[in-house]
Design a protein around this nucleic acid. Structure first.
Lengths: 156, 156
DNA sequence: AAAACTATACTTAGGCT
DNA sequence: TAGCCTAAGTATAGTTT
């Protein structure tokens, strides 16, 4: 009766995706809660819903804020500060090289995204979409571009 | 043989708690990854380890940062939401194109910076400097690299 | 201490209402 | 659309190596 496939990929069917999202969201809440309870540690999960537009936060926004602050202050710690200067410079160069590589990769990715979107627009491929689908599309484009936006704004 | 109890409470035994933490941490990673893949949404989990080491972030610090930024700026009103969808998409594409241009420019700049610094290192240009001068140079390179690093870090 | 094992509890895709 | 149901698949507590 029940056939379950193992496809770890984007669920294109809207209804199925929503159903899966809600189930898994619930499961994830539970897991996070269990982990915090069993091990008595601060933890949070932040998930933006693809449908309700409301972003969901666990265990609650207050706790999440604390955890985020802890995380952000934690990331400020420079684990290299005790290394000799020369070694430090070498490390920084290597690190910078890696990050530049990533930057280039993201750059290419953005290029692809934009050309895709431009083609989509030029060919009026969404002309036949329903209002719902169009809204969803616009939201995803918005999201993608906001990511680009966020990246670039911090560049000075 | 295997008896499993259902006790949802703090595990006082250190070894057992650590084992459980590691197992569940792994499970949680998987769940978050699956959710983001299946539903194509940004999501993250931040968990601080009870055993001293590092704070753990899923799916990765970069994604977490994005999600956190989105979460923190979530309450901002989107002034474009009243624009028609089609016009909105066009605006976003134009905006994205301009920003990609800037991104490319900055990318080139970072490349130059890094190649300069790499040459400085590779050619051992500071080989004959006094300890004092070397220290000063290292400090300045350090500072420069931190600037570069800071810029690149925010791209993640 | 960490890794493998495994029985069992839990999660969830798909079907149905 | 959402909620229930159940089999199939997954995660993990306790145990062993």
């Amino acid at each position: 009766m029940t056939r379950r496939k193992v496809k770890l990929a984007f669920i294109s069917d809207n209804a199925a995706r929503k159903a899966s999202f809600n189930k898994r969201k619930k499961g994830l809440i539970k897991k996070v809660t269990e982990l915090t309870t069993l091990c008595d540690i601060p933890a949070c999960a932040i998930i933006s819903s693809p449908f309700g537009s409301q972003m969901e936060v666990w265990p609650n926004p207050e706790e999440a804020k604390k955890v985020i602050e802890r995380y952000q202050s934690y990331s400020l710690i420079d684990e290299n500060k005790n290394v000799s200067h020369e070694r430090y410079i070498m490390q920084m160069i290597a690190k910078g090289r890696d990050k530049l590589k990533k930057l280039k990769h993201d750059n290419r990715e953005q290029e692809l995204n934009l050309s895709m979107l431009r083609n989509l627009k030029n060919n009026n491929l969404y002309e036949d979409l329903t209002a719902e689908e169009l809204k969803d599309l616009a939201k995803r484009v918005d999201k993608k571009l906001k990511e680009v936006d966020g990246k670039i704004d911090t560049l000075d």
